[in-house]
Design a protein around this nucleic acid. Structure first.
Length: 489
RNA sequence: GGUCUCGUAGCCAAGUGGUUAGGCACCGGUCUGCAAAACCGUCUACAGCGGUUCGAAUCCGCUCGAGACCUCCA
């Protein structure tokens, strides 16, 4: 696949344009994605971002790149708000549940991993935690202070945004001007430690009652949220790396601050390509836990939620997400999920048929055009919905071959089988849902039941045959009458 | 209030100057004892009003509507 390197275009938030992807080191990619703050269960909106970057990761791997994918776990420093008395999310939850903060971290990290596994998201190569990198963070703060872009105040350290902005623009990524930011910044109580409202914390002094704190040159305290990602990405990917991803809502201030921290520490912009995944909406609005407008994956799978009439398989949900581009908002509705479920089943059925097709001596379909379409879609900024459309073109062709309206030769069949498998299972990361039962005894019983029903049908004993069909239906088994006899699932 | 994004058929959603995206639903058909399933076909849309152009869903302007960020969020 090495011949395809160099044709992938990625939309770079920093330039506002699609750019041809050229990694720093030939054949290698360093990718960092802001992970979750593990203070509660991840909701479906959180999941969309990670699934979006899983798609990017998978396609980069497919193109043959050696990827180092780093996704952090934020387990300290994420405050409820920007006021000085803002409480750490993990601490607050630990206090509420009367457990150690690390018990909160452990519980919700495990939940996050379970959910990611259910969605078939590949694990990152490194999953660093903020609390595991306090030393690196203190070192980074020291460097920024030494370079003159941060100052200590009352046991806390703040980044001096105005001083930084004198030489390098602050707000480049999110398209903001510092004058507008100053004009619009809210004046919060208790910000007397800062020289200017825009300055953000690199290190926060911990009060006596604060339960998560570490010794530092500035006293007991804890790191600032923005700093964590800078320290961890630099440690594992270097001062400058290829791709930084995250949710659209992190663009400002989080990612803006990361750029400032990186430049202040090294004089170099830390990231070549900034990628931002858009939000999953519910009722037309961003899914958000704090706004009470969110849905938990577990509820979606089980169907135990007022919004849902039934549960959906994780792969149906993943397929639903793949039908929208990662840079656009996607609206969640029960109806849209139902539609995705039908489409997903249609795709899976066609692939099953493809794998057992009997080749002819010649092909009436153009396999190359189909496959080129797959690549063209993904090369265009990971356009999964365009890929899905191409896959359904292939489905139509497969069905035509199945029904004898088209033919495919042995060579084309082999290529099509391989490429469709690659794009559906490896790139889109879909999985065939496991069969309801591989119980041999049930299979034997069903074979007998269907044989008896078949006899009844031959004798036009519709009462018996329908009784069997309805009875099985009540037992959760659907009988389908095809040309070559009945089947069940 | 500031900055920005979006508005595509009943629903979800690609497409950013010229070739009917796609999925689901609806409707029609094939198959079937009936039904379901499956398959085939149909449905040719781009918020409104102007402008630029041989040609606009796409570019520009205005209007209306929705959302995001500016405070914690993926």
């Amino acid at each position: 696949m090495s011949t395809r390197k160099g044709v992938l275009a990625i939309y770079n938030t920093l330039s506002g344009k699609k750019e041809l992807f050229r990694p720093i080191h030939e054949g290698q990619v360093g990718m960092y994605v802001c992970g979750p703050t593990v203070y509660s269960n991840v909701h479906l909106g959180n999941c969309r971002t990670f699934i979006s970057f899983d798609l990017a990761y998978r396609y980069l791997l497919h193109l043959g790149y050696k990827v180092r994918y780093v996704r952090n776990i934020t387990d300290v420093g994420h405050l409820e708000n920007d006021a000085d008395e803002g409480e750490d999310k993990i601490s607050k939850k630990a206090r509420a549940e009367k457990v150690e903060p690390m018990e909160i971290v452990q519980k919700y990290t495990l939940d996050f991993h379970d959910v990611m596994t259910a969605f078939n998201a590949l694990p990152p190569n490194i999953e660093p935690t903020a609390t595991g990198h306090i030393i690196e963070q203190i070192e980074l703060i020291n460097t920024i202070i030494k370079n003159g872009f941060a100052y200590e105040s009352n046991g806390s350290v703040y980044f001096d945004v105005e001083k930084y902005n004198a030489n390098q623009p602050y707000g480049e990524l999110s398209g903001r001007k510092i004058e507008d930011l100053i004009a619009n910044s809210r004046v919060l109580d208790g910000q007397t430690e800062k020289r200017a409202p825009l300055d953000f914390a690199l290190w926060k002094n911990a009060s006596d009652e604060h339960i998560m704190k570490w010794p530092s040159p500035w006293g007991l305290g804890f790191p600032g949220w923005h700093l964590e990602c800078s320290a961890m990405s630099a440690k594992y990917l270097g001062e400058v790396f290829d791709i930084h991803g995250g949710g659209m809502d992190l663009k400002f201030p989080h990612h803006e601050c990361e750029i400032a921290q990186g430049c202040a520490a090294t004089g170099k912009k830390p990231v070549l390509y900034w990628m931002h995944a858009n939000m999953l909406t519910l009722n037309g609005k961003k899914m958000s836990k704090s706004a009470g407008n969110s849905l938990l994956p577990a509820d979606l799978f089980s169907g135990e939620n007022m919004l849902l009439s039934k549960g959906f398989h994780p792969m149906v949900v993943r397929f639903f997400m793949m039908q929208a581009h990662y840079r656009n908002t996607l609206d969640f509705t029960s109806e849209a999920l139902n539609a995705a479920e039908k489409g997903f089943e249609k795709l899976m059925l066609a692939i099953e048929n493809l794998m057992v097709l009997v080749p002819s001596s010649n092909s009436s379909i153009n396999t190359k055009v189909l496959i080129d379409g797959f690549y063209a879609a993904m090369d265009d900024d990971f356009n999964a919905p365009a890929l899905v459309a191409c896959l359904f073109d292939a489905v139509k062709q497969i069905n035509a071959i199945v029904e004898g309206r088209a033919t495919i030769n042995k060579e084309d069949l082999s290529i099509l089988q391989k490429e469709i498998s690659v794009f559906v299972f490896e790139v889109l990361g879909l999985q065939r849902p496991v069969e309801k039962s591989d119980d041999q005894r049930l299979s034997n019983v069903m074979a007998l039941v269907l044989e008896l029903r078949g006899s009844a049908r031959e004798n036009k004993d519709w009462v018996t045959s329908d009784k069997i069909r309805d009875g099985l239906s009540n037992a959760g088994i659907v009988v389908s009458d095809g040309k070559d006899g009945a089947s069940w699932k």
